[in-house]
Computed example of a mutant assay.
Amino acid sequence: MPTTLITGASSGLGAETARQLAARGHDLALCARRLDRLEALREEILARHPDRRVAVRALDVTDDEQVFAVVRDLRDELGTLDRVVVNAGLGKGAPLGTGRYDANRETAVTNFVAGLAQVEAAMEVFRDQDAGHLVVISSMSALRGLPRTMTTYAATKAGIAHLAEGLRLELLDSPIDVTVLYPGYIASEMNDRAHGRGKGPMMASTRRGVASMVRAMEARRASAYVPGLPWAPLSVVMRRAPLRLLRRMV
């Protein structure tokens, strides 16, 4: 059975990804700050799939030493890590220059610096194994610079996507694959706060949105806009829209 490690797995997209991969036959290594939620998720998954192995660890992804220690420990416990999903993230933000550098810095550290640590730890394992699949969860917001509360968030998601693309270029024709996913609006705790529970524009349910993500992971696609409709065609519009049109869209 393949083994997948997921960070930020205690809720939202991470938890649903764990459920859907377990149904597809994956053993799981689940990490997040809230260990109680991870343990509840493990019990839920094992009740449905008693033949799965599910290891859980408390993890603050902004603690660099802990990131490396936890990834190594889970690899040792499960014997291998076939896939690592860099999912943990933060959606805080404020318009630049409005006195909330603290919020923007926290988002930058969590989404990019901590993302870098997770990628480094995963690649350490994959290089040692000479095999693996790195999946980085970016965002549709990575496609353009965005205004107001989204400015820092969008920049971090663009940064982590470029990090993964650089790796993909380096690893062409190797046994290590790199996937970047660009989710649009998918119901989750983060989007609930921003848009209201499941009521934002073009909001997909958690199950449907994650099903699209999992299909792209399993196909080892280099990149995917998920769900494909409407986000694949909208990605073309977002990349090419003049600034005044883009401002009206966002």
Rank of each mutant, 00 (worst) to 15 (best):
S141A: 15
L163Q: 09
A47I: 06
L234E: 09
G209E: 04
M217Q: 08
K199I: 15
F68W: 06
L35Y: 13
V85L: 15
F126L: 14
A164L: 07
R239E: 09
G25S: 10
P201T: 09
N104R: 09
D76V: 13
E124N: 12
R168A: 14
R75W: 09
K92Q: 15
A47L: 08
H26I: 00
L246R: 10
P95C: 04
L169R: 14
A23L: 06
L134N: 13
H162P: 00
F68E: 13
A103H: 09
V84W: 08
T17N: 06
Q129C: 12
D51I: 00
A47M: 04
V236H: 03
H26T: 02
H133D: 04
T206V: 15
S138C: 08
A161S: 15
L246V: 07
Q20I: 05
R220S: 10
T206C: 14
L172I: 11
G89A: 10
H26M: 04
L163K: 06
V125F: 01
V250N: 13
I45D: 07
V56C: 15
P147F: 05
D63V: 09
A88I: 07
S212H: 13
R19I: 09
L78F: 10
N111Y: 02
L245V: 15
L28R: 01
R244T: 14
G228C: 02
L116V: 15
A69N: 08
V210F: 03
R34W: 06
A69Q: 11
H49C: 01
G159T: 06
G14M: 02
I176Y: 00
H162R: 13
A55G: 01
D27W: 03
L163T: 13
L28H: 01
R247G: 06
A69Y: 05
T98A: 03
T62S: 11
R72T: 11
P2S: 14
G99Y: 01
A158R: 15
